[in-house]
Design a protein around this nucleic acid. Sequence first.
DNA 1: GCACTATGCAATAAATATTTTGCATATTAA
DNA 2: TTAATATGCAAAATATTTATTGCATAGTGC
Lengths: 67, 67
Amino acid sequence: MNMKLKLARVEKNLSQQQLADLTDATRQTIGLIEKGKYNPSLNLCVKIAKTLGKTLDQLFWVGVDDS
Amino acid sequence: MNMKLKLARVEKNLSQQQLADLTDATRQTIGLIEKGKYNPSLNLCVKIAKTLGKTLDQLFWVGVDDS
DNA sequence: GCACTATGCAATAAATATTTTGCATATTAA
DNA sequence: TTAATATGCAAAATATTTATTGCATAGTGC
């Protein structure tokens, strides 16, 4: 479950469908990534991060300072 | 051409083959990623970054402060 | 109740990452 | 010269992401 991604999306008031449209993906793909069900490509990760105003690390890196 | 990745690997004195072994990938995959020829999965990016002691952003993010 | 949006889940198809194998060149060391 | 390492390139096979489609449920507002 990628909480950081879900939180960043909700903070921007975007639905899964809207984020999918903005990143040339589908709703299913976004949903599965948020659920941690798979393993997106780097390009898609970058698109998502830029769309949400975050970096790769902020959305997809398991940092040492995670609680 | 992913220079940041190549530089980080060479700084660690690793061959493409050695990095591939450490990340459960193949030499070809590492070579193609360094050449910018494709689009690795997030999991592989994370493995590579951890192996090289870097973060995703340091290897795969096109930062605003790139010269 | 009824329409509408948001999300989850699942099967199939399509696209593409990754592996496997082999051969090529350049470099370095014995 | 010969052996060994490092890298590039390419074709075919495999694995996995991603798209497509459809149906289900919960919530909201009319």
